[in-house]
Simulated assay, not measured.
Amino acid sequence: MIEQTLQALTGVGTPVRTAWRLLGRARATHYRHAGGKVHGPKQRRRPGPQALNDGERAAVLQVINRAGYSDLSIGQIFIRELDEGRYWCSLSSMYRIAAAAGQSRERRRQATHPAKVKPELVADAPSQVWSWDITKIRGPVKGVWYHLYVLIDIYSRYNPGWIIAAAEDSVLARDFIDEAIARNGQVPHTVHADRGTSMTSQPVSALLVNLGVTRTHSRPQVSDDNPFSEAQFKTLKYLHDFPGSFPSLSAARAFCDGFFTEYNHVHRHSGIGWHTPASVHFATTGPVDDARQATLDAARAAHPER
């Protein structure tokens, strides 16, 4: 019915646009139906008479890559050529030609800087590099915290010293490190810490300088530059029997005494070949490895088919 009405209107000289407006339909619908269905991708539109030919496009690309222009943006090239009285094409056409040649991104030669290497603590024997930190544990009431000072040898994972105090104090930290070094019998060449007030304090710094120990600190605003101490604090606080709070300082000391004793002498650490930190620190891993291998050899001899 609509097609018949349209033919009647256009047959008496009514324009197609007017006829479809009278029928309340879009004019584009008429032309879409008149053209029939189109299968596949839309055919590329033929360039108009004003379009640049292949030679002109090649000339524009040659200008873009001319010596002195190869580091400039397309806008810079267009304006400089225009100032010299030369017009090759519109700015948008120059951009399209550069994009087709893959040259529409950053064209300037820029200095390249190597990626910053993350600093890493390295030790190849015990008592070379120590890491230390202070963590808080809850006291009996809200707002009361106890401060746990812990040293760890990054090679053996052994704890040469730890204390719990009611407050954080730089003089106490100095005495703590001094006593741990004296007890260990060997001065480490490096002591690492984060940038806490006690770690950067004058008493601690003076002690380490007098002992000839190199001080290293975590980078500012970087939370994972002291991984050995942070990992041990997580091991402590994620124990199944770690209390939510401690009723007294003595109770906190008793719990930590049991933890560090077991950590040093019982806990098999995956990062040091499943040995205990004390075994690695005091160089007794050889007999342990021999005993393990003997057990494995006996098991293989008993069941070689396995």
Rank of each mutant, 00 (worst) to 15 (best):
N184Q: 15
N184I: 01
Q186P: 09
Q186W: 09
H189A: 03
H189P: 02
T190K: 10
T190H: 05
V191M: 04
A193S: 15
R195P: 02
G196C: 03
G196A: 11
T197H: 09
S198E: 06
S198L: 12
S198I: 00
M199Q: 07
M199F: 15
M199Y: 10
T200E: 13
S201V: 02
S201C: 04
S201F: 09
V204W: 05
S205D: 09
S205F: 08
S205T: 15
L207T: 09
N210E: 13
V213T: 06
V213L: 10
T214Y: 02
T214D: 05
R215K: 11
T216E: 00
H217Y: 15
R219D: 05
R219C: 01
P220W: 14
Q221I: 01
S223E: 03
D224Q: 11
D224V: 15
D225I: 08
D225N: 13
P227Q: 10
P227L: 07
P227C: 01
F228L: 06
S229H: 05
S229R: 02
E230W: 12
Q232I: 02
K234Q: 08
L236W: 09
H240P: 15
D241Q: 08
D241I: 01
D241G: 11
F242H: 14
P243H: 03
P243C: 02
G244W: 02
S245D: 09
P247Y: 02
L249H: 06
L249S: 05
L249I: 09
A252W: 03
R253P: 01
A254S: 11
A254P: 00
F255E: 04
D257E: 14
D257V: 00
F259W: 11
E262Q: 14
N264G: 10
V266R: 13
R268F: 13
R268T: 04
R268Q: 13
H269F: 15
S270V: 04
S270H: 13
G271V: 01
G271T: 07
G271K: 06
I272Y: 04
W274C: 12
W274T: 00
H275Y: 12
H275A: 00
P277I: 05
P277T: 05
S279P: 06
V280K: 13
H281E: 07
F282L: 03
T284R: 09
T285L: 09
P287K: 10
D289C: 01
D290T: 11
D290C: 04
Q293W: 15
A294N: 14
T295V: 10
T295N: 15
L296H: 13
